[in-house]
Nucleic acid binder design. Structure first.
Length: 103
DNA sequence: AAAGTGACGCATT
DNA sequence: TAATGCGCCACTT
């Protein structure tokens, strides 16, 4: 990945997500002025930095991404549950309780 | 340079 | 309600 600028921007946003909160890919993309949320996924995918809580980034409806860097959504779920995040389905978090609006 | 790919999202079938 | 299609940005081959 050559474009580190975008990568760094996304990293700064994700690292600001409070513990126990989640954000959607689409929202991050909007903040960056992108109309394509895939870019966000692309950036997180190449990242394995533990400083970046990428497990707090979920899909629009709160569903977890199927391809998590560290493994699958099961791993992501485990990390989220460790932060007391409530799941309304086995692979869907409770957005009403844990959604963090980016400002 | 052109086509393929992807941690998505929304509209249409 | 589920499946399919397409837009969109950047990366890879």
């Amino acid at each position: 990945m050559k474009r580190k600028g975008l990568f760094i921007t996304i990293r700064s946003i994700v690292s600001k997500i409070p513990k126990g909160k989640v954000v959607t890919y689409g929202d991050i993309a909007r903040v960056l002025g992108l109309r394509n949320s895939r870019i966000v996924g692309w950036a997180l995918r190449g990242n394995q930095d533990p400083n970046i809580p990428c497990h707090r980034v979920v899909k629009k409806n709160g569903f977890l991404a199927e391809n998590f860097s560290l493994g699958t959504w099961k791993e992501q779920k485990r990390l989220l549950k460790a932060e007391k995040v409530k799941f309304i389905k086995k692979n869907q978090v409770d957005l009403n309780k844990h959604y963090w609006q980016i400002t």
